[in-house]
Write a protein that binds this DNA or RNA. Structure first.
Lengths: 246, 246
DNA sequence: CAGTGGTCTAGACCACCTA
DNA sequence: AGGTGGTCTAGACCACTGC
């Protein structure tokens, strides 16, 4: 029977002992740990106390149980892939495609009340509207309309928005580093104009995605709407039941 | 003493009862629920059984405890910063809607090669096909087709898939706790059958979402396809440039 | 068959809170 | 002082696993 200090709850000490062995790799993924009854004897406690410790370790993603077999060390989940905040250029490169763009329009506009509210603008502040048709391997994939307050990026008209990533320009020229974004995905169908631009038929499905992007301090910087050809693009995301990152 | 059916574990039934009261707003945020001893008497079970139920509800964010005072209903999460792995029932609850379901079909089928590969099945293994029409506040929202290998959940035909969450059944009856899932989102349009079921017009846009869900050890358990009315549902996700959490 | 985790009992003592 | 949740005991029966 091992010795336990009496300062902390027993189940907590048992938790620590097991976690320590996992973190130091003394216990490796898919190793079976001693049964609950064995551990109860080992530490001189009741089985429920051991179970209490194991319950929490299972909850925290260190262990998993298989009824009738035993309790095992879970595989570390370092490779958690969340959807990351990237622009179209980076997005396509990661998929191994060649991105390119055609600038359809770039002008200053007076935002409507919805956009003004989203970007937290004063009544007289203008925004740039940047509309681009974007290609992957020379095939049109998405129509994108970006809206950025003029005071964030004065003179952006002189940048080449067909060859450069907008996010690269914001970062390099204006020191605006986007940190996070809230994004929504809906389905819609192509009208005549969008169908023509994307080379599809009217009524074909489009994945309509819009996002509001923020700086690290929570300042909204960019609102962007995208209409993706659904036959050439799908949005992928990993979902997790808990966010117990190890 | 209230009556409890003997099909599911007692603690799980208690869980459901309390959760139901929270869902229907019979119990409101910061309401105190009866003490553990009171509930043990009420249901004629031991205090540890009640505690087991409460533990899980605390873990799932429905309740919080204050030592010396009692157990209280938690406030709904203000904002889920990530998209979490949840079923339809939980998803709707978080949006403050009343979920319900209609079972359209439940049968064993021989999976095609694509599905067999996704679920890592042997050539002769069968899967359950569960097709449901699901409602929020009595309005049809989504058609869902779930595929689960038969050996994971034998006898699931006898479960009530209209009132119970599939994920709850997998967890309570089969000890299958889904841990993560890979999900894809596309846009499509409604055909005649889907339009009729969802009460929309042929050609209306649908958000087509499919996911493969895994246990913590990486075993694929469920493949599910969903066709959401795009006028009633949008998928939201937070994107981060880096994953420097904390 | 013995061993495992899943569930459950009927108690117990403690620290803490409220009155 | 009486009630609450936090911890713990020493048993029990079950379904399932592997041999």
């Amino acid at each position: 029977m091992a010795e336990l200090k009496d300062t902390l709850p027993i189940y907590h000490q048992i938790k620590q002992i097991i976690r320590e062995k996992i973190l130091t790799n003394e216990l490796k993924p898919d190793d079976r740990i001693p049964s609950e009854i064995e551990m109860a004897k080992l530490y001189g406690v009741s089985r429920m106390t051991v179970r209490n410790a194991l319950n929490e370790l299972v909850m925290e993603g260190y262990l998993y149980r298989v009824p009738g077999k035993g309790t095992f060390v879970a595989r570390p989940r370092i490779e958690r892939s969340f959807a990351l905040l990237t622009g179209f250029m980076e997005d396509m490169r990661q998929k191994g495609l060649r991105p390119s763009s055609k600038l359809l329009s770039l002008k200053q506009i007076i935002p409507d009340s919805v956009l003004r509210k989203r970007l937290k603008l004063l009544p007289n502040e203008k925004v740039f509207e940047i509309v681009r048709l974007r290609y992957a391997n020379e095939e049109p994939i998405v129509i994108q309309a970006s809206y950025i307050p003029v005071f964030f990026c004065p003179g952006i008209e002189s940048e080449n928005l067909e060859t450069s990533s907008l996010y690269d320009i914001l970062e390099a020229k204006y020191q605006l580093v986007l940190d996070h974004a809230q994004q929504r995905l809906e389905a819609t169908v192509a009208d005549e104009k969008k169908a023509q631009l994307l080379g599809i038929k009217i009524g074909d499905p489009l994945l309509y995605i819009y996002r509001l992007s923020f700086l690290a301090n929570g300042t909204p910087v960019e609102f962007v709407e995208s209409w993706y050809r659904s036959d050439r693009y799908a949005f992928e995301v990993m979902l997790y039941k808990n966010l117990n990152l190890r």
